[in-house]
Amino acid sequence: MEYSEKVMEHFMNPKNVGEIKDADGVGTCGNPVCGDLMTFYIKIEPKTDDLNAARIVDIRFKTFGCAAAIAVASMASEMVKGKTLMDVKNLSRNEVAEELDGLPPVKMHCSNLGVQAIQEAVKDYLKKLGRDDLADQIRGCLESKESE
């Protein structure tokens, strides 16, 4: 198998699977037609629009997708837990892939999807606070929407 042990470990026993009913932000990226879909639910404390102060205190996800997609979602959720929204804004797909000891080249889009879906949840949170201006500065899943 072309997957690293870490990918297989997160794929077989993913962390933070589920939903948060009263989530502060929800973000979905991907499309089942393309074989990957991810939804992240986040809880934020303190509930401020200061990106350097607000932190992700809880995160859950649901994924329809291949082993890489599930492992990415699991790993990314672990990586951002306790982190500020600024950290999430600056998170790159390569960081997630590196934490997983690499992904096959054709699976790098899964890594993208994971990061983007979490960023999408952050955008959702900021929009609810009326800070669309801040939300617009975060990448989110625009790329995959355009390619649909």
């Binding site: 198998m1 794929f11 997708g65 291949c66 082993a67």
Partner: peptide
């Protein structure tokens, strides 16, 4: 998704295939 099914079956020692991308 098919690959997830295949790899879970694989972990159980069952080897099948999928038409997933």
């Amino acid at each position: 998704e098919g690959e997830s099914l295949i790899l879970n079956l694989n972990a159980a020692g069952i080897y099948a295939s999928t038409g997933s991308a």
